[in-house]
Design a protein around this nucleic acid. Sequence first.
DNA 1: CTACATGCAAAGGGTTTGCACGACA
DNA 2: TGTCGTGCAAACCCTTTGCATGTAG
Lengths: 154, 154
Amino acid sequence: MQNSTDEVQQKVEYFSTVVRDAGVKVTHQRLEIFREIVTHSGHPDVETIHQGVRQRIPTVSLDTVYRTLWMLLDLGLIATLGSPRERTRFDANTRPHHHFICKRCGIARDFYSVECDQITIPPEVHTMGSVEKTQVEIQGVCHQCNKVNSLPSK
Amino acid sequence: MQNSTDEVQQKVEYFSTVVRDAGVKVTHQRLEIFREIVTHSGHPDVETIHQGVRQRIPTVSLDTVYRTLWMLLDLGLIATLGSPRERTRFDANTRPHHHFICKRCGIARDFYSVECDQITIPPEVHTMGSVEKTQVEIQGVCHQCNKVNSLPSK
DNA sequence: CTACATGCAAAGGGTTTGCACGACA
DNA sequence: TGTCGTGCAAACCCTTTGCATGTAG
């Protein structure tokens, strides 16, 4: 469930480089927040990260955790499960299908693919639990958003 | 972007049957909320659904929409994109990987698969936008939760 | 030393709940 | 007619923001 000490150390160093190069300060808080996510591979939510970091920095505040997480996301050092800052959305399509999701405007469009429906599930997954549903999610940028972005900016 | 009138009608009838059989009342509001999701295949969020239904039932309240959506979810008539009621979670794994997610406790575990990494993207997806990332999400129930559930209940 | 980051507290926005009235079966 | 559903409003989160203080570079 944990990355090796070496791996963690390596990632932390990479973090320092990227953050510094981005002209952002490498603070104690930021380092420990990043370390917290890297050390535990369980995909924690904000509160779990906050609790974890508090064991080492008891005064760290929740809003610092939030601000740091969005910064790490911007720099590509971490990712989110699903789209960030997104609300629950509903789907009444009962046919097996898959999604293309625009990371900019959030639009989700269905597509159908026998290959995607019939993916072989690796044996290790069966050691995790029982499988009920398999879905492919393709992230990208929709044509509409691409157009908007390619306009001459101010 | 819309289902055909026939398809919508068929789904609405199915909805009525399932709801009735579950011992839940088929009200005007519930019918229109369901129709709203079925009519638009764009995976709306709660507010979008509320706005849409208000055009036909101006007095419908937001909390009725919420309550109805969770009920439809319980009955399996609709699904959510990603897990319902879930907060943003973070991932510092930069290797290409895929997720097994327990629909009961929400735990997310990584797995690796060359086949999943190399899925052929259907041509129609390229008409939707540019592709940046493809990920497979397997939903199921983890062994831990399966154990809890198989205990004799009260 | 200076600009940026932090912690605090208060505001903001989405979601849930309690309660009295209204409507399906 | 009885029971369940609805609308309203208040409560309840989680998340964001403004500001004075602290600190990395």
